[in-house]
Amino acid sequence: MTDHLPSLRETLDAHGLSAKKSFGQHFLLDLNVTRKIVRYAGPFDGRAVIEVGPGPGGLTRALLESDAGKVVLVEKDPRFIPLLSELDDGSGRLTIVEADALKVREAELVEGPAHLVSNLPYNVGTPLLIKWLTGPWTPCALTLMFQKEVAERVVAQPGEDAYGRLAVITQAVAEARIVMHLPAAAFTPPPKVASAVVHLIPLAERPAPDRLKRLERVTAAAFGQRRKMLRSSLKQLGGAALCEAAGIEPDARAETIDVAGFLRLADALT
């Protein structure tokens, strides 16, 4: 356990640190909450875990108490490296990488299957998710905290207001569900919005990279003009003919088409 360590608030004060707005930082200092998130993410069965944006290390402490093997921290803000280094017990289990997570090659950080568990910085949460779901390296599971609105967009179903491009691309490659809601007051400093934790498990059979690229083109066009019929919004890609080739009604609108339908549109694009 990490109970012998000073509290997270005491540690921040000792290092004279506070959240940086430009990095989208909002710290989770309640260890009861971070331990609960790690329980939702596990069990890890000795596999490695990558955490992005650990900040003062609230989630890191909970990960070090878990059955994770190697714990790899990717932190862009150099102010936190000395503070995080204090969590290293010399066992070789903790690795700290000062880097931009959008540019990191995860396969070079861990060997074998690994989990991702993070309270993501608000300003890069969506691009990081897309990177992990569509890039060359695939985690065995992801447990990620987003703004509530973004979390709802990740798990949304056809016909719901939040359903859009993010839901289609995510659900084409993974199962996703919200496992926990957190009020703004749980964070320091409190953001203007509530947050939610999403648990994602990549599908065993994922679309090939070229198929995903076509899916991204189709969804960008369809949801770029989501109030229009697909015959109009997809005009540059084939319009009604593309829809008919995919078995989709050309007069339908994007928000009514399920993931399987969008994959058929992507396939028809060839």
Rank of each mutant, 00 (worst) to 15 (best):
R79Y: 09
G46T: 09
F80A: 11
L73T: 08
T134Q: 11
L84H: 07
V71N: 02
L64E: 03
V49K: 01
K103F: 03
E152K: 11
T126G: 02
I96D: 07
L109T: 09
G69T: 09
E111Q: 15
D77Q: 05
I37Q: 05
A101W: 00
P82A: 08
E75K: 05
E98K: 14
V110M: 06
L144T: 03
V74W: 01
R153P: 08
A156D: 10
L144Y: 00
E108F: 04
W132K: 11
K20N: 13
Q147F: 04
V72P: 10
P113K: 13
E98H: 14
R39C: 05
K148D: 07
G135K: 12
A19H: 09
V49M: 04
Q147G: 06
A68E: 08
A48H: 01
R93P: 07
V150I: 13
G112F: 00
A107I: 06
G125N: 13
W132D: 11
L129M: 11
A68C: 05
L73D: 06
S22P: 00
K20E: 12
H115V: 01
W132L: 09
R105K: 15
G69N: 09
T11H: 03
P113T: 13
K148L: 07
I37E: 07
L102A: 08
A48F: 04
L29H: 05
E98T: 11
A107K: 14
L29K: 05
G42K: 11
P113M: 07
A41K: 00
G92N: 09
T11Q: 15
T34H: 06
S22W: 08
K20S: 10
P139M: 12
G57C: 04
W132F: 09
P43N: 08
L17R: 03
I96G: 05
L31F: 01
V74M: 09
A62M: 00
Q25L: 13
L28S: 03
A114F: 15
A62D: 00
D67A: 00
V74H: 12
E98S: 13
E86F: 07
Y122C: 11
G53T: 04
P78D: 12
A156L: 12
G24V: 03
L102Q: 11
A14K: 06
P82I: 01
T138N: 06
R93V: 05
T11A: 15
H115G: 07
L59V: 06
T143E: 03
R47K: 15
Y40Q: 14
G42S: 11
A101Q: 11
L120D: 09
I50L: 02
P78R: 14
K148S: 03
L29Q: 02
V155G: 13
L12F: 10
L63M: 02
L102N: 08
L73W: 00
E152P: 07
T126F: 12
E86S: 15
V33W: 12
F44Y: 01
T34K: 02
T60N: 01
G112L: 02
A62H: 02
P43F: 11
L133P: 02
A41T: 10
T60M: 01
L128R: 04
S118R: 01
P82V: 00
V74L: 04
Y40A: 14
E10I: 06
Q25T: 12
S18W: 07
L144M: 10
F146Y: 12
T95V: 15
S85N: 13
R153E: 03
D100E: 10
A68V: 13
